[in-house]
Amino acid sequence: MTGSARPNGQAIFALVLLVLNTVYASQIFKLGVPFSNGVEPGASFLPIVLCAVLYLAAGRILIAELRNSRSADAPVPSEKSDHVPAIGITGPLIITLLTMGFAAGLERAGYIVTAGAYTFAVALYFNFEDGGRSVRSVIVAAITAVIITGFGWLFFVKLFDLYLPTWIF
């Protein structure tokens, strides 16, 4: 007996891709037939081809991963790949939440406040992670936030004449 197949991360991700592909495919029906006039490719032609390719490729990866997960040794990523090591997701989660906060706050609180808070928080996270000294990290992050926020305003608004929202009272 080889034991039960335990889906690994690769298989779950392939499954997610298949679900996303199905969501994409659900819209194809609104685009009409793949060949208008019977011969000329229409708006749905390429999306149908792409859906089929993705089902095939993701399906193949899913099956291969399910087979691999039955074997004792999990495959090791090649050294030269861009693979991100499977360590905690706390860091990316914090950065994602901070960036979401920036995106949500920019139009409401304006550039100076949002950018200042965002760069302070991102710098604080990396500084604290680097040194572990909280007081020093806060001071360096605060200086970083002031400089980078000022730099961004100077370049975007003053030098390149692009628009950034200001505080709306």
Binding site: Y118, V122, F126, V140, A141, A145, I147
Partner: peptide, 12 residues
């Protein structure tokens, strides 16, 4: 300093 670098990249 990584904090300054990635704060810069994120904001820009």
């Amino acid at each position: 300093n990584r904090g300054a670098l990635y704060g810069f990249i994120g904001l820009i």
